[in-house]
Design a protein around this nucleic acid. Structure first.
Length: 110
DNA sequence: AATGTGACATACC
DNA sequence: TGGTATGCCACAT
């Protein structure tokens, strides 16, 4: 089998509704490995290896800060993608992050 | 097997 | 308020 962890992460990220965002910790927690929040981001870094489209721009840290934008091809691209989804981003921070926050546990595991 | 690492999170100074 | 430090766990080497 493949590396389940990444698969699970990608699966959740791909299920993030358009115009919504979530945090690494939330995903990790949804996977049952709340402590591996770092691995979630790590998985995203490898997302480019996966042919699947991973909206990594919808995943930010607990502060709603676009910490991972530096890992994109273009730093501006992450914010542009978010704005394209209707998400307001100011100073690399997501506006109304708490409102736009999408909890995979609540949505996927009702 | 052991060591290093990290797109986080939390605590402390 | 902000930088530093540690924990944490799964993957990479």
């Amino acid at each position: 089998m493949e590396t389940n962890f990444y698969e699970l992460v990608f699966d959740i990220v791909k299920h993030i509704p358009k115009g919504r965002v979530t945090s690494y910790g939330a995903i990790a927690k949804a996977l049952g490995t709340a402590k591996s929040s770092r691995m979630v981001g790590y998985a995203m870094n490898l997302s480019h290896k996966h042919d699947s489209k991973i909206p990594a721009h919808r995943v930010v840290n607990r502060n709603g800060l676009l910490t991972g934008k530096h890992h994109f091809n273009n730093i501006n691209e992450m914010q542009s993608l978010l704005e394209a989804e209707g998400i307001k981003v100011v100073n690399d921070s997501i506006v109304n992050f708490k409102t736009l926050f999408w909890d995979p546990i609540t949505e996927l595991n009702v």
